[in-house]
């Protein structure tokens, strides 16, 4: 199941539509890291609202993704982590350290706009 990646202005938005297998997630990471350079994007939003499970693997891939995007000169926001998922993640000891999070797509866009303004 491929995740659609939308380009909106300076940003890329990856909106996950259904449960993802490990390889889907790796594919998403690689696609975003590639596209962020091609479109000269300044920010990436990964919307995980539909994910009912974020385990050690998906957390690691998301973290790698954010760090790789950072190295490519853009910033990442993970949006839409569900309350139950967040609760489970911290119990498992999984963190998204140093990675921005926001409630939903709207908040994620606002975050990118604000941090972008501050930087320029």
């Amino acid at each position: 199941m491929e995740v659609p990646i939308l380009k909106q202005g300076d940003y890329l938005i990856a909106s996950i539509q259904s449960a993802l297998s490990d390889s889907d997630l790796v594919q998403l990471r690689d696609a975003l890291v590639e596209k962020v350079g091609r479109f000269r994007s300044r920010g990436v939003i990964v919307d995980v609202t539909v994910l009912d499970v974020m385990d050690s693997f998906s957390t690691r891939i998301l973290r790698d993704l954010a760090h790789m995007i950072r190295l490519r000169g853009a910033r990442t926001v993970i949006v839409g982590v569900q309350p139950e998922v967040a609760f489970t993640m911290v119990q498992l000891g999984l963190r998204l350290e140093g990675i921005a999070t926001a409630l939903d797509l709207e908040e994620g866009l606002a975050y990118l706009d604000e941090t972008g303004e501050k930087e320029s």
Binding site: D52, D55, S56, P83, E84, V85, T88, Q91, L92
Partner: peptide
Amino acid sequence: QVGRALAERVGFEAGELTLIATAISELAR
């Protein structure tokens, strides 16, 4: 998904369903 559906039938709450599904995910991985 199979584990979550079964747990749902047993009557677990949303939060617990996520815990169970995540545990299964870790074990299967």
